[in-house]
Simulated scan of single mutants.
Amino acid sequence: MSNASLATAATHVVAQYSAAGKTLNKAYSATIERLLGDAKTRFVSALEARSLPLVNDQVKSQLVNAQEVLSGFMLKGVQTAYGQADQAIDLIAKRADSAIEKVAANVARVESSFEFVKLDAVRAINAPVASLATQIADKVAEGAKAVEARLGVVAEQVAEVAVAAKPARRAARKA
């Protein structure tokens, strides 16, 4: 494995981990958004299903509006946090790629200036490690995609179960 292919393997590993981080970030963001939407729906249906004393339609409307404002505030915070996480992932990946390119260029320059036989031995030792690292990175990226798919399915199942569930009834106390 040459110096260029070691650098390519390292760049591939960085790209896979970056993609995995973004995939997980997107999955969790979508899950939080879905959960907030489901909570809003359940709140409105619970409020409409019960007749509460001293709560008329105007008060119910104000409660729904307050819940929507709170949900919107929380959603905006989540979206901001996940947007910043995506930016951080991009920045880290860009810096890592830049460092890999600098190291590869320095090694190539030193290698062209001096003939080092031992660098070939170091490369031969690192080739299996680089191959293993790329395989691990590929598995991590696949796992992140599987988590994203599973979170989508689980969140949909939770929403279905929450809608199908009946409210618990309390036994009336005898005085």
Rank of each mutant, 00 (worst) to 15 (best):
I92G: 06
I92D: 08
K94M: 11
D90V: 02
G77R: 03
F73V: 15
I92S: 11
F73G: 15
K94Q: 12
L75N: 13
Q79V: 08
A85W: 09
V69H: 11
M74L: 14
D86M: 01
G77N: 04
S71V: 12
R95N: 14
L75W: 10
V69L: 13
D97G: 05
Q67L: 15
V78G: 01
Q87C: 04
K94E: 10
V69G: 10
S98R: 13
A88E: 02
Q87T: 07
F73Q: 15
V78M: 01
T80F: 07
K76L: 14
I89Q: 02
I92R: 10
V78H: 00
Q87W: 03
G72V: 02
R95L: 12
G72S: 01
L70E: 04
Y82L: 07
G77M: 04
A85E: 09
G83N: 06
D86T: 02
I92N: 08
Q84D: 12
E68I: 10
R95H: 14
G77L: 01
G83Y: 03
Q84M: 12
Q87D: 06
Q87F: 05
K76D: 15
A81R: 05
M74E: 08
K76G: 15
T80N: 09
A81L: 09
G83L: 03
V78E: 00
L91D: 15
D86G: 01
I89P: 00
A85D: 08
S98T: 12
T80A: 07
T80H: 05
I92E: 09
Q67M: 15
E68A: 12
S71F: 08
I92P: 04
G72E: 00
A85P: 05
Q84V: 12
L91K: 15
K94Y: 10
Q79C: 06
A85I: 11
L70R: 06
S71P: 08
I89T: 02
Q84E: 11
Q79G: 05
A81F: 06
D90F: 02
Y82E: 06
S98W: 09
G77H: 01
G77V: 03
S98F: 09
K94L: 09
G77K: 03
K94P: 06
Q84N: 11
G72I: 01
G83A: 04
Y82H: 08
Q67N: 15
G83E: 04
L75E: 13
K94I: 07
E68V: 10
D90R: 00
D90Q: 02
